[in-house]
Amino acid sequence: MKVELESRIVEGPEVVGVEPALDLQGKALPAVQPGAYSRTVTLMPRAELERRMVKGPDGVEFEVEPLRDYYCEAGPTVMPAAYLKIVEDLFNWARSRSIWILGFGTGCGAIEMRPLMTPRFDAYRFGIQWRPTPRQANLFVISGYLSVKTLKRAIRCYEQMQNPKYVVGLGSCTINGGMYWDSYNTIKRLDDYLPVDVYIAGCMPRPEALLQGFEDLKKLIRAGKAEGANQYAERFDWYKANQKQIIHDWDMPDYNW
């Protein structure tokens, strides 16, 4: 794995729009003169990620390369199901009855998750709980639009969850961009970046729709079809390529578990 740490210099002029842009009334705006915008962008090298000498407690100096030495480089592996079908069925039953959601709200849809804890909807009776740490969670609800910055964190969280793990895309933003379909900063197809088991459509979906979506997920789990984690491991390179295509400052290991 190689990480670019030299600062990249991008120099203008840089004009994105070629056709004349229209203002709100549909009148053509004055054409952009070349050179109208120029700037020098320096991507700061991250000091804590650079190769450096470290002095250990015993006085010995040694060199560390954080991304390589502090993280394990092994990628994800496909984990087989239990050998006996009856055992796997038991596990699947338990998995479907004990869904622990990672408490990470990525977009406006997160506001619809909170009512599920209240007396009116009470998701606990379906075995659904919220967990504050990805280690213990096994369902990641992407609640709405994902900006590129959040996507980076979402990937890290997803990779820290333990196999088997599930992803539910909440709201039309995760499906085709929703009302952020022309935004400069949000992705439009969640399943290009993470393996999604269930989509819940709506902007935003009501809590009832969420409960229905969780029931569908449970059916998938019971049937042994929710194998997103293994799918992610199988097509790891494809997912990584998609992710890196839009995350430009990739400053983390390729697989962060």
Partner: peptide, 11 residues
């Protein structure tokens, strides 16, 4: 269910 689920996690 929680207990079996946690024992049953693969990784």
């Amino acid at each position: 269910a929680d207990l079996i689920k946690n024992y049953g996690l693969r990784s």
